[in-house]
């Protein structure tokens, strides 16, 4: 059976009816295990102390912030090329989840940065890139909300997502360039993954899996809502006909 059969709204709804709560439960399990393990059963870092434990929220949410946009990009392309409505609605459904992940990454980053660097915010290339990603999400969501006709909205937001992706990538490199230009070599570096020991690594993996599952479950849930909203739209049109 082709994967495209899931692009049929009815088939999609039937499949995800059971799948969504199951994924949600699995996400909850992973998050509880990963976070409890990470928060209470790992030693403090010799340099960073207990603050290092925010990594279990920060890194997974940052991961999903980027992957959320990538998912929107793929879904937008599928919509533009194959005109599957579920794909467009999934892209729409992913945006608020993605922007929330971006916000979590930014806030936990600030909370982490305060004791470590003595400042809530630094124009570090990574932080700046996430702030720009946040703005991209904001524009994308605003465009969806502003356009009344669902197909037109899907088309225009897909075009924006495509062009936006190119510019987001460009901004990432531009920001790296810009910060070096200012500071002559970054003095604040936040490469946590590189010096993470195994004792931190495994709970981090579990909570990453939890965030991935949470993201998928939320997007499926929201896509189901969007499909129902489209059905309502179709019913209203039918009523206007009669």
């Amino acid at each position: 059976m082709s994967i495209w059969s899931y692009a049929n709204p009815a088939k999609f709804m039937a499949t995800t009816r059971r799948l969504t709560p199951a994924l949600g439960a699995l996400a909850a399990l992973c998050l509880v295990v990963g976070l409890v393990w990470g928060f209470f059963f790992t030693p403090d870092d010799y340099r960073q102390g207990a603050t290092v434990k925010i990594i279990y929220l920060h890194v997974p949410s940052a991961l999903m912030a980027i992957n959320g946009w990538l998912m929107m990009l793929v879904a937008s392309l599928v919509w533009l090329v194959r005109r599957h409505h579920v794909s467009a609605l999934a892209a729409r459904a992913a945006a608020p989840v993605g922007i929330t992940m971006t916000l979590i990454a930014l806030v936990t980053g600030a909370v982490w940065g305060q004791p470590m660097w003595g400042t809530w915010w630094a124009w570090d290339p990574r932080l700046t890139s996430f702030l720009i990603l946040f703005l991209f999400y904001l524009g994308y969501i605003a465009l969806w909300e502003a356009i009344e006709d669902p197909d037109t909205a899907a088309d225009l937001t897909s075009v924006l997502c495509l062009v936006g992706s190119v510019f987001a990538l460009l901004s990432r490199y531009a920001v790296n360039f810009w910060n070096q230009g200012l500071h002559q070599g970054a003095s604040l570096s936040l490469d946590a993954e590189e010096n993470v020991a195994d004792v931190f690594y495994f709970p981090l993996l579990v909570s990453m899996a939890g965030f991935v599952l949470l993201f998928v479950a939320l997007v499926l849930m929201r896509t189901r809502t969007e499909i129902r909203a489209r059905r309502l739209h179709a019913l209203r049109l039918r009523e206007r006909m009669a």
């Binding site: 703005l135 904001l138 465009l143 062009v163 936006g164 510019f167 901004s171 531009a174």
Partner: peptide
């Protein structure tokens, strides 16, 4: 072009365009 069909597209236009301006501004 994205916002031409909207009644009050001006504010939305700024929101869409300003993040796209970042690389040009930096360089």
């Amino acid at each position: 072009a994205l916002t031409v069909g909207l009644k009050r597209g001006g504010l939305l236009l700024s929101l869409l365009v300003l993040p796209l301006y970042v690389p040009t501004l930096i360089f």
